[in-house]
Design a protein around this nucleic acid. Structure first.
Lengths: 161, 161
DNA sequence: TATACAATATATTGCGCAATATATTGTATA
DNA sequence: TATACAATATATTGCGCAATATATTGTATA
């Protein structure tokens, strides 16, 4: 049995990174396909932002960023597109001139409701998928936690020679 | 028991995409840290390209792209940085004027050898990690295949109401 | 009150990738 | 041979994200 395996690339330092990126990309692309077919214009990577905004009612980019665990710069960068799509409106915070307050529009709410309709089914889809293939979700979570607790740099030492 | 779970976000259509992207990003960042500490200048996302190039001896961007399953445009976009880092040289193919032939430099070979020294250990690191947390690698592969065979768009239908 | 600092929004720049278009060169076919 | 097509390299543009810097406004403190 050879030590290397070209099909899986298990001997390569970055094989797991490539795989998880491939999964991420495939899910994003397939979700985009699904949304297009359903007439949903929500940017796939803004679903969680819009959901958090609906939950909050009205919130500033910085508040949303804290909720989502993202940088506030990233949230702010997403805003113009969401406004242009008519999903979100902005107004200055009357109580604090540093802030802008974001709010879902009616269209934004309707679009998010369509996403939710699919989300409920997607939960079932993933559950059935996990019964086939195992619970990737839980396993990735555990891997993330393990790597966060002890990063590769601490785990790895070069093989002498 | 609530239907939603903010900590895992299992009710969201994009939770698995976000998770796998987080894993991919963490691995890339931690690998970059490892390389920096070891004085390795290889771009993390060019490891597989350089490995394929060493295997081939000399190859054109399009050939490498086919080997790696990437677009030839992406390989070509990576080349200037690899040349600038002194890892790779280019020369016109004497047998076919359309092609450029890439070859690892001595520095490129030495750098890749350093990567390999870590890679061998990383294989063990991942194996120990998988014993802790389960074989994420195999599970992501299975999930990728399942989604490729039957994409989300076919699996999902909106919940009526 | 004055001054330093914190919080916020934002512009700018750079990176990596995808998509598209194009120019060049080789190959197959009428 | 002439013409269409394939293969290749490459430029251009756009997207999403990260990093950095900056201007504005609020808050705490001397």
């Amino acid at each position: 049995m050879p030590a290397t395996d070209a099909s899986t690339g298990l001997d390569d330092i970055s094989f797991l990174g490539r795989l998880s990126e491939a999964l991420s990309q495939m899910i994003e692309d397939q979700t985009r396909d699904l949304f297009d077919a359903a007439g949903i214009v929500v940017p796939v990577k803004s679903c969680s932002l819009l959901t958090a905004l609906r939950q909050a009612g009205e919130a500033s980019p910085a508040q949303l960023a804290r909720t989502l665990g993202q940088s506030h710069q990233l949230v702010i960068q997403k805003c113009p597109a969401l406004v242009r799509l008519g999903l979100v409106t902005q107004r200055p915070d009357p109580a604090d001139a540093r802030r802008k307050l974001l709010r879902l529009t009616d269209k934004g709410g309707a679009q998010l409701a369509m996403v939710d309709a699919y989300s409920e089914d997607i939960t079932g889809v993933y559950k059935r998928l996990f019964e086939e293939t195992g619970d990737v979700h839980a396993m990735i979570l555990k891997t993330l936690q393990a790597l966060k607790a002890r990063p590769l740099r601490e785990r790895a030492a070069p093989t002498p020679g």
